[in-house]
Design a binder for these strands. Structure first.
Lengths: 337, 337
DNA sequence: CCTGTTTCTGTAAGCGCTTGCAAGATCGAG
DNA sequence: CTCGATCTTGCAAGCGCTTACAGAAACAGG
């Protein structure tokens, strides 16, 4: 089937292609009396503009690229969904890529997206291979960084204060009387969220004079199985921790399962906290004390922000989004406390 | 920053733009001695081809569109991830959209993707508004339907036999001695997977002369909370079912949680089965009897299939992928059985 | 050394759309 | 009725790339 072009529509109506183009992009720019016939011709011929040609001529692709660390989990899915919904109304589409938490792959993804001419970019976190940010900047592509909120980031951040949230969690446990802690964290190398959370925990403990030695922190890849193993490792210490802070929710689930299997009662024998408040957190027994992160909100706001920038408007000043610290049943006073 | 074009690279090397274009698209088509200098120039100038121009000139966009019912759950995330990985190596990118299980929205998504000139399309299930399939066909865009395997589908299916899997589950329970069943199913209207699974259950029961009346089937939107409620409803019947078959995993989790809260022991008082084998299935107590669906495999194969078609090759004949019926602790003989 | 092949490269014609420019149309004010 | 301002429109020049086509170069065989 031969493609229907602007030209075809123009011929059908008896105007020039330029006029039809103007109508398509901003109906207000053509005479009232022309609008209806043009629209009818478009419908009749089932004309759909050629995105490539459009992007070539206008230097805009109406695509927004998003790179997530993973899509295997619903963590980022919610943000992606929200982003997509937010920008769809404006005629934009999301081109998505997932890096598998691998910086090298992320670099390639960004390059590919840039090559594909995305008009804007959404990334997660601020830690990546050197030069990537510069590459984006040089391309002049608006970019927004989610999930974190650094003051010193190269791009606007639409995220939340990971460190402070983690501090809340740790503070809560110290207040309950805990003094011996274990922490299960994501790998720190390429993940500033994990880094910030661990730093937050460290801060909170240091503030109150509680020590956290190296062996008290286990880094692992995100996963329930990994959480189980890390928990086992932490609980084999002597003396063992009375509270285990998890930097991501799968760790907490793993810890909870492992505790149950080991016959440990939570929170009587050990307190366990999560981070993210995914759906299971409220359902599992004991319900998980955790931090509800504004995932959908980040996706939506990132979209709105980028659209604003693309429209030449002054976007709302990005700020740290609120999170919610939720105390449930998995945290309580330490044994004998 | 002015864009670096083919021309710039060509000038730097001292060849024509056409030669560089050939090198980029298929290095084998230029003289050995030229390859290195061209590559160097590309690297030095940080040249990235303009996707739009490329797609305009070649009539191919190197984008594959995918529409999922939702991305909020990891169910489809795994497939998306796999799809993306599969086609990335071939220089393709995924343009993603989610319909929120709404056929009208799905139609719009498909149209948008088509308008954006995707070279191929991946959809989930075969139930959609009339005309959508024809639209795709008329555009001549290769399309693949995942998650199901109908013989009569308008496009190749890369999925599994939902009905047979459900039959396996129901058969297993009948074999254990169950005669009174409850079923929690997704809404049937726009979801052929849910329909097929329910039909499978019906078949298996009918085969062995077990009745399943209308009130024994509760349809709900996917979600744990919805599962809880449906389970409550089913268990309030008199006599109550000895086994509850869930057409999707969140229902099963909800049922399990609700059972625990109601003081029912699973499987002693009631057997519960899931469908999908998401990570929680093996971890929860009691571990869930369920069907492991080939999610990542579908994504990867869909990608491979589409790439093959796009390359003009004869793709491997699509066939129903194997699933795995996994018996764990949540199913057992009926009480007093 | 010539001819027929084969390989490689440059030329140039678009792909479908946007947009600066300028001309034509319209209109209100003087 | 004239003039300038304001709208509206068509013309035409690209946007950056691919791809016949044909010419040039290289090579083998006779």
């Amino acid at each position: 089937m031969a493609r229907v072009t602007l030209e075809d529509v123009a011929r059908a109506v008896g105007v020039s292609a330029a006029t039809v183009s103007r109508y398509v992009n901003d109906p207000g720019r053509v005479r009232e009396a022309l609008r209806d016939p043009i629209q009818r011709a478009i419908d009749e011929l089932a004309y759909v503009p050629h995105g490539g040609a459009r992007s070539l001529a206008s230097r805009r692709s109406r695509m927004i690229g998003a790179v997530f660390p993973s899509l295997q989990t619903s963590l980022f899915g919610g943000a992606l969904d929200a982003l997509q919904n937010e920008i769809a109304a404006a005629g934009y589409t999301v081109v998505v890529a997932s890096s598998g938490y691998d910086p090298a792959r992320e670099t390639v993804q960004v390059q590919t997206l840039l090559a594909n001419g995305v008009d804007a970019l959404m990334l997660v976190g601020g830690a990546r291979e050197p030069g990537v940010h510069r590459l984006i900047e040089r391309k002049g592509v608006p970019c927004v960084i989610t999930w974190v909120s650094h003051a010193d980031a190269p791009f606007p951040c639409i995220g939340f204060d990971n460190a402070r949230a983690a501090r809340d969690v740790a503070g809560h446990l110290v207040d309950l009387g805990h003094r011996r802690f274990g922490v299960i964290s994501g790998h720190l190398e390429h993940n500033d969220r994990a880094g910030a959370r661990l730093a937050g925990v460290r801060d909170a403990l240091a503030d109150r004079g509680v020590a956290l030695d190296a062996a008290g922190v286990v880094c692992a890849s995100f996963g329930v199985e990994e959480g189980r193993e890390a928990f086992r490792r932490l609980m084999s210490r002597d003396p063992r921790p009375t509270a285990v802070i998890c930097g991501a929710e799968p760790f907490a689930y793993g810890a909870l399962f492992e505790a149950a299997e080991a016959g440990l009662s939570v929170p009587r024998d050990v307190s366990i906290t999560g981070f993210d408040d995914m759906w299971l957190a409220a359902q599992i027994t004991p319900a998980l004390t955790t931090v509800r992160t504004p995932r959908a909100r980040m996706g939506a706001l990132a979209g709105r922000h980028l659209l604003a920038v693309l429209a030449g408007e002054e976007p709302a000043a990005p700020l740290a989004l609120p999170y919610e610290f939720i105390v449930r049943q998995s945290s309580g006073p330490p044994p004998g406390g």
